[in-house]
Write a protein that binds this DNA or RNA. Structure first.
Lengths: 200, 200
DNA sequence: GTCTATAGTGCGATAGAC
DNA sequence: GTCTATCGCACTATAGAC
């Protein structure tokens, strides 16, 4: 497949790097234009000069083409939590995780995030995967809190509150006309959560 | 399929009632013994004397065989919210929803819930569907809160806290050795949530 | 109730990198 | 020689179309 190889000075041929990223970009484009279900894995692969079989070597299923690459966000979120002050109350650890994660949602990223979310919002199967990833993150954060000595059910609750604040904040951040930074929005949402628990 | 019809006095033949329930029970049994992915829709159908086609007439996809029947729980949850005192703070509406939902988790139901959850816990695809349903419930509760005049993001946050308390409580309720009632557990988890927001 | 498209898997073959 | 990315082919099961 000539499109998937590049030629070096010496005439030697190698597989073009960044295959996964090209597949991802092609998948987002096709999902956005034709719709997720109307796009076959073969079409995505062909659009970058590869075969369906290769697509499935890179992604365990079609949905994952939209979710690979979130590892950096997850890493930032957990690093923020890990680096928070020892002995801090659970919600302060959560706040640190959120602040760290916010660095990944710079303003330049907003258009791409909007585009991607539009695709997800249009497909229940993609929404299911997105929730699943978020719960996985909450579970990991819960483990981290338990390692720091937080008891149950506080650890699980605090972790879930963290991902909930993130999800609500993210939805706000990509809303039409929204211009505040992710960090600003998260602070406001977090404050609202605390206020809710007190207004009773 | 003789197993799926019954004969009435007059000799007339009709579809045996409870087809969906029998399919559901068979699905749970097979998923529990062979595993979800190792069980085909055709096998489930055949085990109650029906065809694959009939299975998909009752359930839009294989996973739904495990999730149909949750409508009563959802209805109880939302009814509890609707019947809470007008003007009550958001978390009080949530508390009412939880209290109402708890009536569906009587002690007799615990063994069945445990069995079902074991199957779900063993399969990511089923977990994804379960999360999705729970988020759908949170969304509906959020709508209800907004209808009652709760602003954003408070409505969404309160609703999500409700389903989170439910999920954590349910997991506790079916844990090995647990004997407290669902209502008791929910109260404890709810109190823990409020305490978390105050300990800062 | 049958027919078909597509997701996803398993395995063998190829070809370049090392 | 090993390792890794790819292709190609055969196959099953889901799910939807007819």
């Amino acid at each position: 497949m000539s499109a998937s190889v590049i030629t070096y000075a010496g005439g030697m041929v190698r597989w073009e790097p960044g295959t996964r990223e090209r597949l991802q970009a092609a998948a987002l484009d096709l999902f956005a234009t034709r719709g997720f279900e109307q796009t076959t894995a073969a079409e995505i692969a062909q659009s970058v000069g590869l075969t369906e079989r290769t697509f499935f070597r890179h992604f365990p299923d079609k949905r994952e083409a939209l979710f690979h690459g979130q590892e950096l966000f997850v890493a930032a979120f957990l690093t923020g939590a890990r680096e928070s002050q020892a002995g801090a109350p659970p919600l302060e650890v959560v706040r640190a995780a959120l602040a760290s994660a916010a660095t990944f949602f710079a303003d330049e990223r907003r258009p791409h995030s909007r585009r991607r979310q539009t695709v997800i919002d249009a497909n229940p199967a993609l929404q299911e995967r997105e929730r699943h990833k978020m719960v996985g993150l909450a579970d990991t954060l819960g483990d981290l809190l338990r390692d720091r000595g937080v008891a149950e059910p506080a650890a699980t609750l605090a972790a879930r509150m963290g991902t909930t604040v993130f999800e609500v904040s993210f939805a706000t951040w990509i809303a039409a006309g929204e211009e505040r930074s992710m960090a600003e929005i998260q602070s406001a949402v977090f404050a609202e959560l605390v206020a809710l628990a007190q207004d009773r």
